[in-house]
């Protein structure tokens, strides 16, 4: 037989209330930040996604119309989704492999390591807009030095940012140039692998592949997972480099009176975040922009959860 819970004495209740107030007080900076910058915008985004709203006149409810429009009628949605998926797969995979490779290389260098670390890290500090403009000029098929050199060597001269089949690889190239962030964390992780584990593996006759597979990889796999998860989230939000490269390569800077075609060339650099800007702040169809934002949010959450679950499985196996 269960006995009824006795009511706490008034002094204890007062103490609990004070403790709750103290805890809430110290949590309040986070709570306010969460409410203002996450909860409210998220709730508002869900609400506006069911309305026709141009940002100037009052929103009017339209049910699922915006969802139907975005998913079945808006011409750039699936094109941008395909481009974004392409970039996520290629960019995240190559950046991770390249980051590990550069990290391993840097840790092996005996003399001048400081110089090379600085040299590989510096591009990461370049502002994305400046770096993209610089790349667009270097890779300009008409006047850029890269194609000029390739031509002198008798090699094919790609159209880079002006060719739909080369524009996304060019963006990947740009992201590999700015590998400094991943290089630093992989370098730290590699230096953290206990040297005695390599010595033991060598004594057991392990070759370089075995040392990598059974010593290096298990030690740095949490860092690889971190790089992949953050890489996926960042690439799903890929915006600045894609739009700047398109603008510079198209020769239309978006001055007054100029119509800039997003996704130049031939929609090959459209990414989902660009759609949000295009629908929301150029077409002023906030309802549809909210739909795209929500879909992006759900996909980012889904990818992260999936990767984290996969990581838990790998950790259990290890």
């Amino acid at each position: 037989m269960r006995t009824p819970r006795a009511a706490a004495p008034p002094a204890l209740r007062r103490k609990r209330r004070r403790e709750l107030a103290t805890t809430a007080g110290f949590l309040s900076p986070w709570l306010i930040g969460f409410a203002v910058f996450f909860a409210y915008p998220l709730i508002a985004t869900v609400y506006f996604s069911f309305t026709h709203y141009d940002g100037f006149n009052a929103p009017t409810p339209v049910g699922l119309k915006n969802y139907v429009y975005v998913l079945t009628e808006y011409p750039f949605f699936w094109q941008a989704v395909r481009n974004t998926v392409w970039l996520v797969v290629a960019m995240v995979a190559l950046r991770t492999v390249f980051g590990i490779g550069i990290g391993m290389l840097i840790t092996k260098i005996k003399s001048g390591a400081g110089f090379f670390r600085t040299a590989f890290y510096l591009p990461y500090l370049a502002p994305p807009v400046a770096a993209t403009i610089g790349f667009a000029f270097l890779l300009n098929p008409g006047t850029g030095p890269v194609d000029h050199i390739l031509g002198r060597l008798g090699l094919p001269q790609p159209g880079w940012f002006t060719d739909p089949s080369w524009s996304k690889p060019s963006l990947v190239l740009l992201s590999l140039w700015g590998i400094g962030d991943l290089m630093v964390i992989f370098m730290a992780a590699l230096l953290d692998v206990p040297a005695e584990q390599y010595e033991a593996a060598s004594l057991d006759g392990a070759n370089w592949w075995h040392r990598w597979r059974y010593v290096t990889y298990p030690n740095i796999s949490p860092i690889i997972m971190f790089a992949v998860v953050t890489g996926v989230i960042q690439t799903l939000q890929y915006y600045t480099q894609a739009i700047i490269a398109g603008q510079v390569a198209s020769g239309i800077a978006g001055n007054a009176g100029q119509q800039f075609e997003p996704g130049y060339p031939n929609g090959s650099t459209w990414t989902v975040p660009q759609l949000v800007y295009n629908i929301g702040f150029q077409r002023f169809d906030y309802g549809s922009a909210c739909v795209v934002s929500l879909l992006l949010f759900v996909v980012a959450m889904g990818c992260t959860a999936l990767l984290m679950r996969r990581r838990s499985g790998l950790m259990a196996e290890d």
Partner: peptide, 15 residues
């Protein structure tokens, strides 16, 4: 298209 596109990329600013 390809040849013209490459030549176009050598143009300076319109204005």
């Amino acid at each position: 298209y390809q040849k013209l596109s490459k030549y176009r990329s050598s143009f300076g600013d319109e204005f």
